[in-house]
């Protein structure tokens, strides 16, 4: 099983990016071995629809769960449809810490979308 963390940088010690759709990177991590791989989020600079695009990217990484600071309503709907569990971390910290928190059951499941999408 692997999980995805939204991050500001490309490695496990990068900070968690509090935004899902516009996160700079998605880090795919195996919580057992802590092996990881970084993927640049091609949706980060999308003029609109970043959430839906990022959700498809994460679904393509075959993750069982995703950790971020906030999920917009469109990303939420898409991730939910893809059957990917969403976890929220309100703490500023590294991806490594976020995964440790996840393993220890310290992260909350994301409920209602945390902010409304923007449109141009």
């Amino acid at each position: 099983m692997t999980i995805v963390v939204s991050t500001t940088g490309s490695d496990l010690d990068a900070m968690l990016d509090p935004r899902f759709g516009r996160a700079a990177f998605f880090l795919i991590v195996d919580p057992e071995t802590m092996a990881w791989q970084g993927h640049r989020n091609s949706a980060a600079d999308a003029p609109g629809g970043a959430g839906t695009q990022a959700a498809q990217l994460v679904a393509g990484l075959k993750a069982a769960a995703v950790i971020s600071g906030a999920f917009g309503p469109n990303a939420f709907r898409a991730l939910e449809a893809a059957g990917i569990a969403m976890f929220q971390s309100s703490q500023a910290g590294t991806a490594r810490q976020a995964v440790e928190d996840y393993k220890a059951g310290r992260l909350e499941r994301a409920g209602l979308p945390s902010r409304s999408g923007r449109h141009g």
């Binding site: 609109g48 629809g49 970043a50 959430g51 839906t52 695009q53 498809q56 679904a59 898409a78 893809a82």
Partner: peptide, 8 residues
């Protein structure tokens, strides 16, 4: 506009 998402 990423208004359609195909997930599985």
């Amino acid at each position: 506009y990423h208004a359609i998402a195909v997930l599985g």
